[in-house]
């Protein structure tokens, strides 16, 4: 080394590890299906938000002149009704667009309700071991033993048909999953030293539960919630199909399917298109949820 050598800093530039969010995106991006799912969900949300603006017709008003018009690419179809019309002359595209709004609302509302109640019950069960835990968990076990749709039907039958009651019923059906996940996460977190350390500095029970432990349990709950949205949409559609969920003329995908039953042979589009909408949405949430799990679960990293 000669005297002219330009002095350089001793340590290489310290760029540091990436920000947690950047790291999350790094892992999430690696999963192509998850990214596709995310895009579909974002698209659905946009469509749902702008439903009033982008739908060409009203989803409810019937038009006596256009019964069972096929989609535009088939003989007899027109671009005025791109995806055709149903048996009483309502534009299917407009109904699907408004249905997206409803389905997303159902999915999210149901899951929020189930996650909220499930987390609280799970936290309580995980914290207060003993009698309280046994009561909560056995109740959940009983709920799980019943076929989910059957249970939902029973609840709706008791409460009466309608969208709100259907949502409530689906929430109850989903509840045990969140209680179990929350409880398992709480039990594994409570055993960790940081909880003991918080107790030693005098933290009370509420503080331990909600400020120390809960934030560390959210990752599995978020994943399950995303997957739960698809289940909720599916179950709500099923209830709608059975006439127990959203009532006509509400443009709910399941109800649309039910209304179109008798035209399966004559007009395929009336049945197929709502079905495809459900399929795509559910698939998108499932793919997104899988990607979320891969990115959030530290065990799958590296």
């Amino acid at each position: 080394m000669t005297a002219e050598t330009i002095p350089t800093p001793v340590a290489a530039p310290n760029t540091g590890p990436p920000h947690p969010l950047a790291e999350f995106w790094l892992y999430f991006r690696a999963n192509a299906g998850a990214v596709v799912g995310l895009f579909v969900i974002v698209g659905l949300v946009v469509v749902a938000l702008l439903a009033d603006v982008i739908s060409p017709h009203s989803p409810i008003i019937t038009n006596n002149t256009v019964f069972l018009k096929p989609p535009f690419w088939q003989a007899g179809g027109t671009l005025a009704y791109p995806l055709g019309t149903d048996a009483i002359g309502r534009d299917i595209l407009s109904r699907l667009i408004h249905g997206a709004r409803l389905s997303l609302l159902i999915g999210i509302a149901v899951v929020v309700l189930a996650v909220f109640a499930g987390t609280v019950l799970g936290l309580v069960a995980g914290f207060f071991r003993g009698m309280i835990e046994i009561v909560i968990m056995r109740l959940m076990d009983i709920t799980l033993t019943l076929p989910s749709l059957l249970l939902a039907i029973v609840i709706v039958a008791i409460l009466g048909p309608g969208l709100m009651n259907a949502m409530l019923a689906v929430s109850v059906v989903l509840l045990p999953h969140y209680v179990r996940i929350a409880r398992a996460a709480v039990i594994s977190e409570v055993a960790k030293d940081y909880v003991t350390a918080a107790r030693v500095i005098g933290a009370g029970r509420m503080r331990l539960m909600f400020k120390e432990v809960l934030p560390n349990c959210v990752a599995p709950l978020i994943v399950q919630a995303t997957l739960g949205i698809s289940t909720a949409i599916l179950d709500a559609a099923a209830l709608g199909f059975l006439g127990l969920g959203a009532q006509p003329p509400t443009p709910e995908w399941g109800t649309m399917l039910a209304d179109a039953r008798e035209f399966v042979v004559r007009a395929w589009w009336v049945v197929t298109l709502p079905g495809v909408a459900i399929l795509v949405t559910v698939l998108a949430f499932n793919l997104f949820g899988d990607g979320l799990r891969d990115a959030l679960d530290p065990k799958l990293k590296r």
Partner: peptide
Amino acid sequence: FQNPYGSLN
């Protein structure tokens, strides 16, 4: 505690 990875939230 012993394990500094478990004792901090």
